[in-house]
Amino acid sequence: MARQEQVLVLEPQQELKFRGPFTDVVTATLKLTNPTDRNVCFKVKTTAPRRYCVRPNSGVIDSGTSINVSVMLQPFEYDPNEKSKHKFMVQSILAPRDMTDMEGVWKEAKPEELMDSKLRCAFEMPIG
């Protein structure tokens, strides 16, 4: 089943960098751009939902516009040897032209209409 290619442009494309110290919330910004002529619905998923606060975690990106998603890593005991295994996924679908409610769009979505992009996470300590 050919999966629809992701139409959203993600910045960064592959890796979210979080720079410590991790004694307080550390925020990384994920910019989502919709270069198409259609509105696009998106939702953000993660393998570590209790560790991050994501705002907005879903919504509609109008055609030709961008939005910034704040990914807030909650404070934790940082271990430089522990490589972060956390991952994020931006799932998206072209919004129907007569879209009324977003929940309905996700419920009726056919698997082949869904697009997704995955990002890994990297934790870095402040320089010096």
């Binding site: 393998t47 939902p49 209790r50 560790r51 991050y52 879903s58 991952k87």
Partner: peptide
């Protein structure tokens, strides 16, 4: 085999 990553909806409110 590597377990396929399990994704959950991200949370926007207080954790």
């Amino acid at each position: 085999a590597l377990s396929e990553d399990e994704f959950h909806d991200a949370v926007s409110g207080e954790l």
